Simulated assay, not measured.
Amino acid sequence: MTRARTRDERGAASAFIVGMTITMLVVAGLVVDGGGALNAKSTIADDVEAAAVAGAQATDELHYRQHDELVVNPAEAEARAREVLASRGYTDIRVYATETTVTVSARDTVATKMLLLIGFNEFDIDATATAEAGVL
């Protein structure tokens, strides 16, 4: 009489639990760190927009009085925009100002908390905004 061979399934549940635990940690990391990155992206977008508006408010009053034309003082606009972003802790700032518009860009990084476990250390975020002078 021959014996039927049975498959040895010892440890299968342990492998499943380990695999699911790792998967759940990665998903939790995406939720926590991804949410933090989205929040930081929204913050940098708001800050860049505020800097562009501050720059666009640097109008040349003398030119307006003489020519009834509203123009931006590019040097002052750039200084104002940089000051706004520097006061909020940004270091990678780009400002381009003309007599009609002010364009501001900034970059930053957001450190991860949970995704460090799988070797993902940070998210790079950036934003750009443009504002133009206007009379309200």
Score class of each variant (00 low, 15 high):
Lys113Cys: 05
Leu117Phe: 10
Val72Ala: 11
Leu30Ile: 11
Leu62Pro: 00
Thr21Cys: 14
Pro74Cys: 04
Ile44Asp: 05
Pro74Arg: 04
Glu122Phe: 00
Tyr90Val: 06
Phe16Met: 15
Arg88Thr: 08
Ser42Asp: 13
Ile44Cys: 02
Ala12Gly: 14
Arg7His: 13
Leu85Tyr: 01
Val84Phe: 03
Val31Lys: 13
Gly35Ile: 06
Asp8Lys: 01
Arg7Glu: 07
Ala133His: 06
Arg88Lys: 15
Thr21Val: 14
Leu117Tyr: 12
Ala77Met: 10
Thr98Ala: 06
Ala13Asp: 00
Leu25Arg: 12
Leu30Gln: 06
Val27Ala: 15
Arg5Trp: 12
Arg82Ala: 11
Leu136Glu: 12
Asn121Gly: 01
Ser14Ala: 15
Arg80Thr: 02
Val48Glu: 04
Leu115Ser: 09
Gln57Val: 02
Glu99Val: 08
Ala54Glu: 01
Gly35Asp: 14
Thr6Pro: 00
Ala40Arg: 11
Asp8Gly: 01
Ala45Cys: 07
Glu132Ile: 13
Val31Ala: 15
Ala77Tyr: 08
Thr98Asp: 11
Leu136Met: 11
Ala12Arg: 07
Ala37His: 10
Ser14Gly: 01
Ala111Thr: 14
Thr101Asp: 03
Thr91Phe: 07
Leu117Ile: 15
Ser105Thr: 04
Arg3Ala: 13
Asp124Gly: 03
